[in-house]
Structures are given as structure tokens and as C-alpha cells.
Amino acid sequence: MEIFLLFISAIFVNNILLAQYLGNCPYLGCSKEKGVAIGMGAAVIFVTVLATVFTYLFQQYVMVPFQLEYLQTIFFILIIAALVQFVEMFLKKMVPPLYKSLGIFLPLITTNCAVLGVAILVHRLEFDLWTSFLYSIAASAGFLLAIVLMAGIRERLALCRIPRSMQGIPNGLIMAGIMSLSFLAFKGMI
């Protein structure tokens, strides 16, 4: 039951994009087509889970013993960036099909704030490793949901007549705002 609540909370109530406003860059950049959005969402799930587990272990076994917690943000950026680079090389060599579908998205999210945000949030929320793992899956699934919804909306918007100055990003930001407002309705659920 607790896990179920964790998932509902991370996907809908505290959606990483629409309630915590993290990761807006790929959200607006990669939401023009549904196919691209799904690829991006899948890459975010993949990287977030990996990054969360690695940074969690690093925090537990390196940073805490040496009392380096105050350097958390900068350490995590370094680790995530190196990790994603490594994963990209690994996939290219070992799993070419996966590299073909995720490869172009991986460099885009090397230093993404949604990934870093989840890695830091699990420490703020004082989760253990297993819960952190589940939380990272749920939070990035929330990212996937939000970006796919957004891509659906923007595919429709592409056919509408919009004043030139509002086309593209300005309109995308307005859509993001309205979606964020509608996701606020989930706040009362838990």
C-alpha cells in the first residue's frame, strides 16, 4: 500500500515536471512529436534510476564517512555526468539497438535537473535504497507521462493558427502552465 501511494504521489501529486518544475528544458525541447517524447521519457527513466542508485551508494559510502554532505550538489553533477557518458559508451558497444533508440537523448540529459533533482530529493525525503529506487522509477514515469501528454497537445496545436510571436516555446510555456494548474487538482488526493 505504501509503495502504491509512493507511486501515485510521485507520478500525479508531486509530478516532477508539473508540480516541482524540474526538467523544463527537455520538456519543452523534446515535446513536439509523440515518438520523440516517448524516447526522451524512456531515456529519462533509464538515466534517473541509474543515477539515483549510484549517487545514493556514493552518498552512503563515501560522502557520509568523510563528512562531505555539504558538497552534495556538485558531487552529484559530476557523478551523473560521468555516469551518463559511461552508459552511452557502454550501450554503443554492447547493446546497439538500445543505443539507437535512446542514444540521441542521453547527452541531452547528462546534467538535467530532473535527474539531479530526484537524486537529491531521495536524501531530503530520507528514503532507504529500495524506496529510492522505486521513487526514481515513479518520478521519471511521471516525467514520461507529462511529456507525452504535452506532445499530444502540441501535435494538435501545430495545426492551429497561432500568432507568429506566440508560436513554439511561448505557446509551449502557456500549455505547461495550464497543465501544471490542472495537475494541482491531484493535491487533494493524498
Binding site: 558538497l71 558531487f75 560521468a82 559511461f86
Partner: peptide, 19 residues
């Protein structure tokens, strides 16, 4: 702090270089 960050950077860089 500086030394530990530097050390981590060197470790990561060498891992990536080998990889």
C-alpha cells in the same frame, strides 16, 4: 573540499578514458 572534488574528477576522468 577542493582536494576531494579534484580527486573525484580525476577518478571519473580516468574511468571514462579507460572506458
Amino acid at each position: 573540499a577542493v582536494v576531494s572534488l579534484f580527486a573525484l574528477g580525476v577518478v571519473m576522468a580516468s574511468v571514462l578514458a579507460v572506458a
